[in-house]
């Protein structure tokens, strides 16, 4: 216990200084959420590259939670879905159901090139399409995989902070 406290004291704060706010104009739905966005992540067929970056974005260095975004464990608790990967045939229906399970007002963020336009998997036999072909998408974050800074920036557009 003491060792842990000592470690905390010695390490100090590792979070990067907050970059200037990217918010220009928020959508009406995002504004309704009042700066606190609970997020459910759905892996619709990703290679897990984006998951590593999302994990990093919510880690101590980039610390997306300080801007009001928070990952939750069920779509019933969520305001927004973060979807990664091209939507595979097996995940198309579960993704639709997950979207229906989120209480309104709700938002969808497509993270990574695969989620935006199927990336290198475009036209593959197991792929049903991009995320916007299955559920309506509000924000897209480009990159393969997107850098954590990009993800944080995308999420700040929702929280407005």
């Amino acid at each position: 216990m003491l060792g842990l406290l000592r470690k905390i004291r010695r390490t100090g704060r590792v979070a990067e200084p907050a970059p200037p706010s990217p918010v220009v104009d928020r959508s009406a739905v995002a504004a309704e959420l009042g700066g606190s966005v609970q997020i459910r992540h759905v892996d619709a067929g990703s290679c897990n590259g984006c998951e590593v970056e999302i994990g990093s974005a919510f880690g101590p260095v980039y610390d997306a939670e300080r801007y009001g975004a928070r990952l939750v464990a069920s779509p019933r608790h969520a305001d927004a879905l973060v979807v990664t990967g091209p939507v595979t045939r097996n995940m198309a229906e579960p993704l639709r159901r997950t979207y229906e399970a989120v209480p309104g007002p709700k938002l969808v963020v497509a993270v990574g090139d695969c989620a935006r336009n199927c990336g290198v998997f475009a036209g593959a036999y197991g792929v049903a399409g991009a995320v916007r072909d299955v559920v309506p998408v509000d924000v897209e974050i480009a990159g393969c995989p997107p850098r954590p800074e990009a993800i944080v920036e995308g999420l700040r557009k929702l929280t407005g902070r």
């Binding site: 779509p75 579960p94 993704l95 159901r97 997950t98 229906e100 399970a101």
Partner: peptide, 12 residues
């Protein structure tokens, strides 16, 4: 109120 499907992890 909104009637929704029972949450079963989307799995059926």
């Amino acid at each position: 109120r909104r009637a929704a499907r029972l949450w079963d992890c989307g799995g059926g």
